[in-house]
Simulated assay, not measured.
Amino acid sequence: MTDRHLIVLNVNGEAHEALVEARKTLLDVLRHDLGLTGTHVGCEHGVCGACTVLVDGEPVRACLMFAVQAETAEIRTVESLGRDGELSDLQRSFSEHHGLQCGFCTPGFLMLAEGFLAQRPDAGREEIREAVSANLCRCTGYQTIVDAIEATATRRCHAAEKEATA
């Protein structure tokens, strides 16, 4: 006998219904039920961070969270960053600073950085380094990832300052 639950998930600003087993992960629902394949399956043990999404603004490993646990939460995936064919400022920065190579880990780093910068918009380089140490990349050596996040933080802070004085 399978224990299934009808849940409603708020993903990227849209409500989605899914009939899921209690043990089904948020990662599996996002990828297989909702077709949001930007969230990558990596280690499936919460170590690599490839499956990082934002749940109520906090970076979360989607492979470690059951979908039923996320029912009342606001979930954001990498698909929420760029709109209408345009890259977000963070995505552009990753491109400009060569913060990706094979690209497998990139969605997880983008979502980790998006959540981190929302909480620490004025973060310094060492704070950024500490934050990104939570995710694994086997290609870039992290330097360019840190450069990209730092550049985004700087741009966002300058934009906020301009807006405040306008």
Rank of each mutant, 00 (worst) to 15 (best):
L30N: 02
L30T: 01
R31P: 00
R31Q: 06
H32F: 11
D33S: 05
L34C: 02
G35K: 02
T37D: 03
T37A: 14
G38E: 04
T39V: 14
G42W: 03
C43S: 06
E44K: 11
H45T: 12
H45N: 11
G46L: 12
V47S: 10
V47E: 14
C48I: 02
C48T: 01
A50E: 09
C51F: 09
C51R: 01
T52C: 09
V53A: 12
L54N: 12
L54S: 09
L54Q: 13
L54C: 11
V55I: 15
D56C: 10
G57K: 12
G57P: 09
G57E: 08
E58C: 08
R61C: 14
R61V: 03
A62Y: 03
C63L: 10
C63Y: 07
C63F: 07
L64Q: 04
L64S: 13
V68C: 08
V68A: 01
E71V: 04
A73E: 05
A73K: 13
E74W: 07
E74T: 14
R76F: 04
R76G: 02
R76L: 14
T77K: 00
V78S: 05
E79W: 03
L81Y: 01
L81T: 10
G85S: 05
L87C: 12
L87P: 08
L87E: 08
S88Y: 10
S88P: 09
Q91T: 04
Q91W: 01
Q91Y: 05
R92T: 05
S93K: 03
F94T: 00
S95P: 00
S95H: 02
S95T: 03
S95V: 10
E96F: 01
H97K: 15
H97A: 02
H98S: 11
G99I: 06
L100I: 06
Q101C: 05
Q101D: 07
C102V: 06
G103N: 09
F104M: 02
F104L: 10
C105N: 05
C105M: 06
T106W: 09
T106K: 06
P107E: 06
G108M: 13
L110R: 05
L110S: 04
L110T: 01
L110Q: 03
M111G: 03
M111Y: 02
L112S: 12
A113I: 07
F116H: 03
L117G: 01
Q119N: 15
Q119C: 13
Q119H: 15
R120I: 02
R120K: 15
P121M: 02
A123Y: 14
A123R: 10
E126D: 15
E127C: 14
E127A: 15
I128N: 12
E130I: 08
E130P: 00
V132S: 14
V132L: 15
S133N: 15
S133P: 09
A134I: 02
N135R: 07
N135A: 14
L136F: 11
L136N: 08
L136P: 03
L136G: 08
L136Q: 07
